[in-house]
C-alpha cells in the first residue's frame, strides 16, 4: 500500500473516532480537545488532497482561533464543567437511528452517482500559469473572487463588533 493511501485510511479512522468522542464525551473540556484533534486531522486530509493553503488556514483559524474561543466559553460558563449531570437528552436513541438512516441514504446516493461523467470546469488562464497552490489561490482571491473576498471582510468585522456588543456586561 502506498504511503499516501495508508495515511488517508489512518487519518480517516482517527477523524471518525475523535468525532464520535466529541459528541459522546461527558466532559466539555475533553470534548473541546477531541474537536481540536479532529480539526487538525482534517488539515492532514486537505494536504493529501493537494489543498495546501486550505490546510494551513484550517490550522490557523480553527485550531488557533475557534478552539481557543470555545475553551474560553467553557471557562466563562462555570457550571459547564460539571460532569455528573447527563449531557445528552432523552432523544439520544431515536437521533442515533435517524442519523444512521441519513448516512445510509446519502451513502447509497453517492455510490449511485456516475462521478466519472461530470465534465470538468474550464480553467481560467491566470490559474494555468500559476506554479504553486498558494499562487493559484492568490490569483483567484484577488481576481475572480475579489468581491466575495471584500464582502467576507465586512461580515467578519460585523460579527466581531456584534460579539463584543452581545458579550459585554451591561453598564450599571
Amino acid at each position: 500500500m502506498a504511503l499516501t493511501t495508508f495515511l488517508f485510511y489512518l487519518t480517516a479512522a482517527l477523524i471518525l473516532f475523535c468525532a464520535v468522542r466529541v459528541v459522546t464525551s461527558q466532559h466539555v473540556f475533553r470534548a473541546a480537545l477531541y474537536l481540536a484533534t479532529t480539526l487538525s486531522l482534517l488539515a492532514v486530509q486537505y494536504l493529501l488532497l493537494h489543498a495546501e493553503f486550505v490546510a494551513v488556514v484550517q490550522i490557523l483559524v480553527y485550531v488557533g482561533a475557534v478552539i481557543i474561543l470555545i475553551i474560553f466559553a467553557v471557562m466563562l460558563t462555570a457550571q459547564i464543567g460539571d460532569s455528573n449531570i447527563s449531557q445528552t437528552n432523552r432523544l439520544a436513541l431515536p437521533a442515533a437511528l435517524g442519523c444512521g438512516a441519513l448516512f445510509y441514504a446519502l451513502h447509497k446516493a453517492l455510490q449511485a452517482t456516475a462521478w466519472e461523467k461530470v465534465a470538468p470546469a474550464a480553467a481560467s488562464p491566470a490559474l494555468l500559469s500559476a506554479k504553486t497552490n498558494l499562487q493559484a489561490v492568490g490569483f483567484s482571491l484577488l481576481g475572480e473572487y475579489v468581491y466575495p473576498f471584500e464582502l467576507i471582510a465586512l461580515i467578519l468585522f460585523t460579527a466581531l463588533v456584534g460579539a463584543v456588543l452581545i458579550a459585554r456586561k451591561d453598564p450599571e
Binding site: 483559524v61 480553527y62 482561533a65 475557534v66 474561543l69 470555545i70 474560553f72 466559553a73 461580515i155 467578519l156 460585523t158 460579527a159 466581531l160 456584534g162 460579539a163 463584543v164 452581545i166 458579550a167
Partner: peptide, 9 residues
C-alpha cells in the same frame, strides 16, 4: 469563524 464568535458570545 464568525458564527462561532457570535454564537459563543
Amino acid at each position: 469563524a464568525a458564527e462561532a464568535t457570535v454564537g459563543l458570545a
